[in-house]
């Protein structure tokens, strides 16, 4: 089957601005493949981002694309989706954008269970602003603002989203494009708030400072730290230390989606008139 990538791309805006070797391209390909496999009409699709390298993705996609303010993509997306529950709303956001400045919107979108698919590109660094440490930078890692090693402790983004109430949580990595695409597709099909955390590589800002300047080396390093969810259940906590569990981490189809819950509010309000 031929995947119609160009159908969803604004080819006249190529070449893109990402570094050669950046994982964002692999992730965008995964997203577009999932769109095509699900035959999503680009006239029914809003693609929304915040600020950062990842958040530049909407500019290259031929749909309703909204490049918003830093960290706030989910709030705009909530306004779009709540206004038009019949349409598809997808958010893409980096680790700094979604878990630092946008952390409050992330946990509340999870709690609200609004039918938005959220792709978090986690490359452990603020890339666009020059390589500062983010809420997912590993302890001890070097960044532009941690030249002596990061004193901070990172978030487990998927665990955070699951705990906050997201009803679909998956983690993938850029070394496995097929799994990535499959998990994004699952998120798009899910009715409710779906998070797909994708472990990615920023060799330019993160790798260069941490002896992994070659993109292939960094992608391999990311892949090496992952454990599939099926293997992970057989492993002890000690064995899982420093590992990232990948695959479908959590799915709950029992909870009501927000817009559907509000439809019932409208029913009650109009019945009482």
């Amino acid at each position: 089957m031929t995947i119609r990538l160009a159908h969803y791309l604004r080819m006249n805006h190529m070449p893109h601005m990402w570094c050669p070797g950046s994982g964002i391209g692999i992730i965008v390909k995964g997203i577009l493949t999932a769109f095509d496999e699900l035959s999503i009409n680009k006239n029914d699709l809003a693609f929304i981002s915040g600020i950062g390298c990842t958040s530049r993705a909407p500019g290259y996609l031929d749909m309703y694309t909204l490049h918003t303010t830093h960290g706030r993509a989910l709030s705009f997306a909530t306004g779009v989706k709540f206004s038009r529950p019949d349409k598809n709303v997808v958010v893409i956001s980096g680790d700094g954008d979604s878990t630092a400045i946008g952390g409050n919107h992330l946990i509340h979108a999870c709690r609200r269970n609004i039918d938005i698919t959220m792709i978090i590109v986690n490359n452990n660094i603020y890339g666009m602003t020059g390589g500062q440490y983010s809420p997912t930078t590993p302890t001890g890692a070097k960044a532009a603002t941690s030249p002596w090693g990061n004193a901070d402790h990172p978030f487990d983004v998927s665990a955070l989203c699951k705990a906050a109430g997201a009803t679909y949580v998956a983690r993938a990595h850029v070394g496995s494009g097929v799994q990535l695409q499959r998990l994004i597709k699952g998120g798009l099909e899910h009715k409710g708030f779906a998070v797909i955390e994708v472990l990615s590589n920023c060799h330019t800002q993160y790798g260069r400072r941490n002896r992994l300047a070659d993109p292939i080396d960094l992608i391999n390093d990311v892949a090496k730290k992952t454990v599939n969810v099926r293997q992970a259940v057989k492993m002890s906590e000690e064995e899982l230390e420093g590992k990232y569990v990948v695959g479908l981490i959590h799915k709950d189809e029992s909870r009501k989606e927000y817009c559907e819950a509000y439809d019932e509010v409208i029913k009650r309000a109009t019945a009482s008139r």
């Binding site: 706030r72 989910l74 909530t78 306004g79 779009v80 989706k81």
Partner: peptide, 27 residues
């Protein structure tokens, strides 16, 4: 909701403004 409109209490003031802009873009 009585006029089939949408009310949402967001998580903070910033989000409320963002949601309003998102809604406006849908018309």
């Amino acid at each position: 909701p009585e006029v089939k409109g949408k009310f949402i209490q967001m998580e903070d003031e910033i989000a409320a403004m963002g949601a309003v802009i998102g809604a406006s873009l849908t018309g």
